[in-house]
């Protein structure tokens, strides 16, 4: 049996918002150590990976591993019906065909229970090896969101170049070109670790979608390495993360 309680529905709302633009159906795997989810988008260009350790929850119990096939649009509708301040408890039996979501208001005067039908999903899981990234950049997540938004006005393709001097985002299109450079700051809000310089091209549409996770974390980590997908990571309250992987564009 699974029983997992979050103190605030707001966190679940943010997580669902960060997932639902990339994937519509996905399996949430629950075990005694927490919850994991991994799915590629329909066009196999990006992958999202969610991890919530038990520390994310006020209460967590999972006696036996259980996989919950979720329709994220349906889950989104349910969490929208709750107030962000409500607590939410997710419950499922060992061989569940439905997920129970119980919301309780702050003063416990209002409770709302929803049953969500679960799906049997046959999804590929990919083994992502530990990667020694050539460049790791950390910056305010709002800054990254702003850059991705601004770049997408100019081109579908965003070129990211990273050197010891800084990280540069470039887009070139019919309108003209855009270049935004960020250097490391002494106060530490932008850090840039470079083992070797790198330049790669990515689909701006996907980068923009990743920034739906901005409300989850003040900071974002961007990791690049030759010949491997880009990693964009948002941490979740010290006990979890949402990671997006994006295959680079390559010259024919």
């Amino acid at each position: 049996m699974l029983e997992a309680r979050l103190g605030e529905t707001q966190l679940l709302k943010k997580i669902v918002d960060a997932l639902k633009e990339i994937i519509s159906l996905s399996t949430l795997d629950c075990s005694e150590t927490g919850m994991q989810l991994q799915s590629m988008d329909n066009s196999h260009v990006s992958l999202v990976s969610l991890s919530l350790q038990t520390g994310c929850f006020e209460k967590y119990r999972c006696d036996r591993n259980v996989s919950l096939g979720l329709d994220l649009k349906s889950l989104s509708k349910v969490v929208k019906s709750a107030s962000g301040d409500d607590s939410v408890t997710l419950s499922a039996a060992d061989k569940a065909d439905k997920l129970l979501l119980s919301f309780e208001s702050d003063n416990k005067s209002r409770t709302a229970d929803y049953e969500l039908k679960l799906l049997n999903l046959d999804q590929d899981h990919l083994g992502i090896p530990d990667t020694n990234y050539a460049c790791t950049v950390q910056m305010p997540s709002s800054e990254f969101a702003r850059i991705c938004r601004d770049m997408s006005m100019f081109s579908e393709t965003v070129v990211i170049s990273c050197t010891k001097q800084g990280i540069k985002f470039s887009a070139n299109g019919d309108l003209g070109s855009a270049n935004i450079k960020l250097a490391e700051t002494s106060k530490g809000d932008i850090t840039i670790d470079v083992e070797e310089p790198i330049t790669q091209s990515f689909a701006g549409r996907y980068l923009n979608t990743f920034t739906r996770a901005t409300p989850l974390s003040d900071r974002v980590k961007i990791c690049l390495a030759p010949e491997v997908p880009l990693l964009v990571e948002y941490s979740i309250e010290d006990y979890g993360y949402i990671r997006y992987y994006l295959a680079p564009k390559v010259d024919d």
Partner: peptide, 14 residues
């Protein structure tokens, strides 16, 4: 325009 790679080509299916 550069081509878009398939992400699954980078990782092994489990």
């Amino acid at each position: 325009e550069p081509l878009q790679n398939d992400l699954a080509e980078y990782y092994d299916k489990l």
